[in-house]
Amino acid sequence: MSEAPPMGGARQLAASVPIRTAAGGATIAIPILAVDVTGDLALGAALVAIALVPGIVVAPLVGALLDRSHNPRLLMMLAAAGTAAAYGVAAFLGPVPVWAVMLGLAVSGLLIPFGFGGLSSFVAAPGTDARKAYALDALSYNLGGVAGPALVAALAPTLGPRAALLAMAVIALLSLAGLPLLRVPPRAASHPHLVRSMADGLVALATHRPLAAVTTSGTLAEFGRGIMPIAAIGIALGATGDASASAYVVAAFAAGALVGAALEPLRPDVLTPQTTMLVGFGLVGLATLAASLGIGLGWTIALVGISGLCSAAPTAAMLLLRRTQSPVHVVSQVFTVGAALRAAASAGGAAVAGLLAGLDPLLLLAGSGAVWLLSAAVMLAFPRGSRLAAASS
């Protein structure tokens, strides 16, 4: 396997980081703008849901279209342009009626899977180092997840939430400059009818044992992650009386994950990807359980940061296994559906934690750690000596 060209990593990040940054920032800017313009927090929450839920629903279709397309890069570029336009329309909430903003955000929700799981399924083009490519992809997700909200947090109080959302629209457009630099070859496989192709992807996810183990493990891990921010609010209230201090706990995990993802391409390749998932998610769970011991807010923040650091390697390994264990004609479907399942699991974890908010928040955090350990244990079901379902990159 040959190494990627020297600028391959920069091209990959240039293509993927902008659209992910824009999406991450928009989910913060949209409710702030809704409250600023209408004073209605419920409307803000509804607009965020409209921007997120369609992507979960259409993930199999997006994947099938990318798997069948002779020019998948063009579809991704059109999706980035459409997302930017939708955010631009939403930024003018007030002059633009609510129904039009809802329609625009629904369109953006339909398009977002192209730049998330869809783009991930193409980053390890033939002739590149697949492990490095997916380590960079994990870094891209972390950069977008941190940079988007951080930019909104900086812009909304100074220039206003409308300007912050417009900035996200402009950033989404930057992917149009990055995507042409990335190699995105079409799938070299025959494709059945579209509906049959979608069914084949879902069947592969459910019945191909290695792929089912990876998908279940990754989904459970995201459920555990979704619990943590809700637990952090209760921990912060108990320690300082100020719910805003929970941001330090959440930021510690994000910062740890970002550092880990940046270092991941340098990590010696001594473990198989499935072992990396098993060990990595297990370490996240143990660090989270340690953080729940109640030794003090400072130690909780530090240990949550360590758990985030440990999450980078198994996440990159998960992305690599999605690719190597997917039948070639459904690779994009596996990525888009896998990403959608993780998004839904994160929301589900937050919802369950919200329902259990009356419990001791340290118990909630311990529950998060237990779910991470369960996600690690699932990888014990990964069959030894499993053969690759797709051609290795």
Score class of each variant (00 low, 15 high):
residue 380 L to E: 04
residue 280 G to P: 05
residue 344 A to K: 01
residue 313 A to Q: 13
residue 341 L to N: 04
residue 106 A to L: 15
residue 255 A to G: 07
residue 116 F to M: 15
residue 64 A to L: 09
residue 162 R to M: 13
residue 366 A to H: 04
residue 42 A to T: 14
residue 88 G to E: 12
residue 45 A to G: 15
residue 343 A to R: 12
residue 185 P to R: 04
residue 365 L to F: 04
residue 237 L to A: 02
residue 251 A to F: 11
residue 29 A to F: 13
residue 165 L to F: 07
residue 369 G to E: 04
residue 62 V to W: 10
residue 57 V to S: 09
residue 157 P to V: 10
residue 319 L to P: 00
residue 27 T to I: 15
residue 247 A to F: 11
residue 76 M to A: 11
residue 367 G to F: 11
residue 228 M to T: 14
residue 98 V to G: 00
residue 280 G to M: 13
residue 87 Y to H: 05
residue 226 G to V: 01
residue 315 T to F: 14
residue 369 G to A: 03
residue 297 L to Y: 13
residue 321 L to I: 08
residue 29 A to D: 12
residue 138 A to W: 06
residue 12 Q to Y: 01
residue 43 L to I: 10
residue 128 T to I: 00
residue 106 A to P: 01
residue 82 G to E: 06
residue 383 P to V: 11
residue 35 V to M: 06
residue 269 D to V: 10
residue 206 A to Y: 08
residue 339 A to N: 14
residue 56 I to Q: 10
residue 313 A to N: 10
residue 201 G to V: 06
residue 285 G to P: 01
residue 208 H to T: 13
residue 28 I to A: 15
residue 196 R to P: 00
residue 265 P to G: 05
residue 390 A to E: 12
residue 337 V to K: 06
residue 145 G to R: 06
residue 252 A to P: 04
residue 364 L to M: 15
residue 89 V to N: 09
residue 355 L to S: 08
residue 165 L to N: 07
residue 244 S to V: 14
residue 365 L to R: 02
residue 175 S to R: 06
residue 300 T to F: 08
residue 295 I to V: 14
